[in-house]
């Protein structure tokens, strides 16, 4: 009908035989007929195409509840996560983050922290001694010594890391665990500053307002030295099994930096004073996730690790 040799073309071939008036009429009629036919054709064609597409798409049905290929998201170790969180907190307060080695000198681990040889305080930290005459650091405190020398006063620093104690391992004791050492040295740093700072910091860590108290604690590298307790977050101080009915949970040791330690770090204790504290990251992780077996943290079991 519509092609060059179609019926309509035949009609238009004869148009020349018509008078101009007739030609006008017939031309219009022809165009209208052509338009109608073309529209009908397009419509049918579109319909067929649409049907074909629909049929193809229908065949392309996919079960989207089937699992995705490839690996999902992995997990960061909970100690990595808490460490990053607390580092960010300290950085926002102007603290420098420092690293220290796992193998330390006896001097940095003990003597420079006011724990001379044969001091009974050395018993408080069962030490792994090494064949090269050094030791595995028993705390992150030696980084204080490195930090004072590197940064000079005034300074604010933290040092998170792995520490070692020569202990039998069971559900609540590990020979390898994580601490975060913190230190602030400036003019006129006082116990009152320490209390304010620890309360602010711990409220940020626990994401709620915490009540802290200081009581005497003996650590040779601070004077005075404190044990810092927080009011039990489970019972809010009323007494429960977690706080052994005391209403308080022992959280971290802290104190004003001992003048001997400042001096060995190259800082004049008459001009500067400071506070220092040691936060147990392993302990915090266990508290946060209610982990009851410390061995899980270094057991490499993905059933445990993929939960974080």
């Amino acid at each position: 009908m519509l092609g060059r040799k179609g019926k309509l073309a035949e009609v238009s071939k004869d148009m020349g035989k018509l008078s101009p008036e007739q030609r006008g009429v017939v031309g219009k009629l022809l165009n209208a007929a052509k338009q109608t036919l073309e529209n009908a054709l397009t419509e049918r064609k579109n319909a067929f195409e649409a049907a074909a597409l629909a049929a193809r798409l229908e065949r392309e049905w996919v079960d989207l509840t089937a699992p995705a290929a490839g690996a999902g998201l992995g997990s960061l170790h909970p100690l990595t996560q808490i460490q990053a969180e607390i580092e960010d907190l300290f950085v926002s307060l102007g603290f420098t983050v420092l690293d220290g080695p796992e193998v330390e000198t006896e001097f940095n681990n003990f003597d420079a922290l006011n724990i001379p040889p044969d001091h009974p305080a050395r018993d408080m930290q069962d030490t792994f001694w090494l064949s090269n005459g050094h030791l595995l650091r028993t705390h992150t405190s030696p980084v204080q010594v490195r930090g004072m020398k590197k940064l000079g006063p005034p300074l604010r620093m933290i040092a998170p890391g792995r520490v070692f104690r020569n202990e039998e391992v069971d559900a609540s004791h590990e020979h390898t665990f994580y601490q975060l050492e913190g230190m602030m040295v400036d003019k006129d740093v006082s116990v009152a500053h320490l209390i304010y700072f620890m309360k602010t910091l711990l409220s940020a860590i626990f994401k709620r307002d915490v009540t802290v108290r200081l009581r005497p604690g003996y650590f040779p590298f601070v004077e005075p030295g404190f044990e810092l307790d927080i009011q039990c977050l489970i019972c809010n101080g009323a007494g429960c099994p977690v706080c052994k009915q005391s209403g308080w949970v022992e959280l971290l040791p802290c104190g004003l930096v001992h003048p001997n330690v400042l001096r060995l770090g190259g800082i004049d204790p008459e001009e500067y004073s400071g506070f220092a504290f040691g936060l147990g990251l392993t302990r915090l992780v266990m508290m946060r996730y209610a982990i009851d077996d410390i061995r899980q943290l270094q057991g490499g079991d993905l059933r445990f690790l993929t939960q974080f």
Partner: peptide, 10 residues
């Protein structure tokens, strides 16, 4: 990339 972190002893 889908890797899960482990901590091992030193």
């Amino acid at each position: 990339q889908g890797y899960t972190e482990v901590y091992n002893y030193s």
